[in-house]
Design a protein around this nucleic acid. Structure first.
Length: 495
RNA sequence: GGCCCCAUGGUCUAACGGUUAAGACACCGGCCUUUCAAGCCGGCAGCAGGGGUUCGACUCCCCUUGGGGCCA
């Protein structure tokens, strides 16, 4: 770098998230995206998305879209990558063969890489033998120094060569990681690993290095599982004479049983959180707190605040266990604090069969405001707003036993009369005043009126303050439901 | 198996040689109250073990143990 400047200083920060389309984006991946995104945004850099689909066996085209959708749902927009393009396109490894070939040629020309004619079967056999003798199963380097003639004769046997990197037998290689500090590996533990398979397909470590370099990535922020790959990648950078980016290996996110996150741990796919009624702002906030903590200790942070406060060098080294309980709590906090229009927007898909198409937004906002502090996910909403839009509900058994006893007919009648005298659009305060007055006149506790009324109006024994419910329902709807309940109780008493 | 990483309550974390070891989730009480929530107040609970270094270790070093990852 000129004048000792780092790439980030000369070109600006460029980071990337490079998922393989072999599965859905799980919460661990989501957090890696988030950290990359936060780092890019806070340093005015670029966030790039790249699809690592070189593994033909496991990569599936149809898995790309769900990953993109998940990242987008989280609101973590990318500056370059699929669907948006960019100066270093294409952003799919499967379309970058030309680029890999160029770098392959450079390595061969400089003598850093050499063709290996051993077949996968022979290699497997030798590994097996090594294992049996208790030796580490490393490649023995037999094709390292073949003469031209030897190569020709091997090829004449019909063998196709893989390409291996010549790795020093001795010495060490150290990487400086922003999160972990210096990590050292002995070259002796590495072997001349394969760069390009005999079929011509580049291996992950090679493609990754070539892409990170050609895409001018300055900071490689990725999961810790790649830490062990890093020395190999650094050897490739060196062989190619390329500048080495900064590395930051973020700790793993583990399942509650401390194992790697997978399908059997239930919903860990980001997309699943959407259908379960989580807000992306809550998921982002929660995820940011797994492995990182703001200096001021304030846990509740918008993405804007996260961008300002996030510090890559304060990310923890130890793996964190993903805690659904805390996420759910935080989601509740968000449901309570988000603006009403935003809440309505996020809730819409969940309320589809419950709230009629053309329902007045103003009233919906009030309804949501009335119920929001007793739900933790949007998926719970239909269960608590239904009665605001329909009187087709049953009375809760428990409530019937408790509040629809023999005296209920009288109570409901009295309430009905009181409500009948109200204005059409009376406010909660007016209903409350009327009920307090009625209770006094009847010489009973207000709760003796309130509970049966709630059951009559909502079918439930729990819910928002009754008088708010009455205001939102309106006088006539209250009357109708009070009547229906009185009839129900009369019938109940008769049977 | 080899190599690498990690280690504070059940969980996420704070602490950066001297603190009554702090906060959050969960849990348990209490308050508030028309119910359920929410909110408020309080409580339970931790430095993995052993050696060093130091006047003094959660903090630094080593070992052990445990957990995780990568490689096949």
């Amino acid at each position: 770098m000129p004048g000792g400047m780092t790439m980030a200083e000369t070109h600006g920060v460029r980071v990337r998230f490079a998922p393989s389309p072999t599965g859905e984006l799980h919460v661990g991946g989501a957090r890696t995206v988030l950290f990359n995104w936060l780092f890019a945004r806070q340093s005015g850099g670029k966030f790039i998305l790249r699809i690592e689909d070189t593994d033909e066996q496991r990569s599936k085209d149809e898995l790309v879209q769900p990953i993109l959708d998940s990242v987008r749902w989280l609101g973590l927009d990318w500056d370059e990558g699929p669907e948006v393009g960019g100066p270093y396109a294409p952003y799919f490894q499967s379309q970058r063969g030309e680029v890999y070939r160029e770098y392959t040629e450079r390595l061969v020309a400089s003598g850093h890489a050499y063709p290996c004619y051993c077949t996968p079967e022979e290699l497997a056999q030798r590994r097996e033998a090594a294992r049996a003798e208790g030796r580490p199963p490393r490649y023995d380097g037999r094709c390292r120094d073949l003469s031209e003639a030897q190569r020709r004769s091997l090829a004449a046997e019909g063998r196709t060569a893989a390409l291996r990197l010549r790795v020093p037998d001795t010495g060490q290689i150290s990487i400086t990681d922003i999160i972990r500090g210096e990590v050292t590996f002995d070259n002796a533990t590495l072997d001349d690993f394969v760069l390009v398979k005999s079929g011509g397909m580049p291996v992950y470590n090679f493609a990754c290095v070539v892409d990170d370099h050609t895409m001018r990535i300055t900071h490689v922020i990725r999961a810790e599982e790649h830490l062990s790959n890093t020395p190999k990648q650094v050897h490739i950078y060196r062989a190619l004479g390329l500048p080495i980016p900064e590395f930051a290996h973020v700790p793993m996110v583990l399942a509650p049983d401390r194992s790697k996150l997978s399908k059997r741990h239930g919903a860990t796919a980001t997309a699943e959180y959407k259908v379960q009624g989580y807000l992306p702002e809550a998921l982002n906030n929660y995820l940011a707190l797994v492995g990182w903590y703001p200096e001021d200790g304030e846990e509740f942070m918008s993405v804007v605040e996260l961008t300002a406060k996030f510090r890559l060098d304060r990310v923890s080294k130890s793996a964190g266990i993903y805690d659904n309980g805390k996420l759910t709590w935080m989601n509740g906090v968000y449901l309570r604090s988000v603006s009403l229009p935003r809440l309505a927007e996020a809730a819409a898909p969940f309320l589809a069969g419950v709230v009629p198409e053309g329902a007045a937004p103003g009233r919906l906002h009030k309804v949501l405001d009335a119920v929001r502090d007793r739900v933790k996910t949007l998926a719970e909403l239909p269960g608590v707003v239904g009665y605001f839009y329909s009187d087709q509900f049953e009375y809760e058994d428990k409530g019937v036993r408790k509040h629809f006893g023999p005296e209920a007919v009288q109570v409901l009648e009295s309430c009905r009369e009181a409500v009948a005298g109200m204005a059409l659009d009376a406010a909660a305060e007016a209903y409350e005043a009327a009920y307090r007055q009625l209770a006094e006149r009847l010489g009973v506790q207000a709760s003796a009126l309130i509970h049966p009324t709630r059951l009559a109006l909502t079918g439930q024994t729990v819910g928002p303050g009754l008088f708010v419910v009455m205001e939102l329902l309106g006088r006539d709807q209250c009357l109708a439901r009070l009547n229906r309940a009185a009839a129900f109780c009369r019938q109940l008493a008769a049977s």
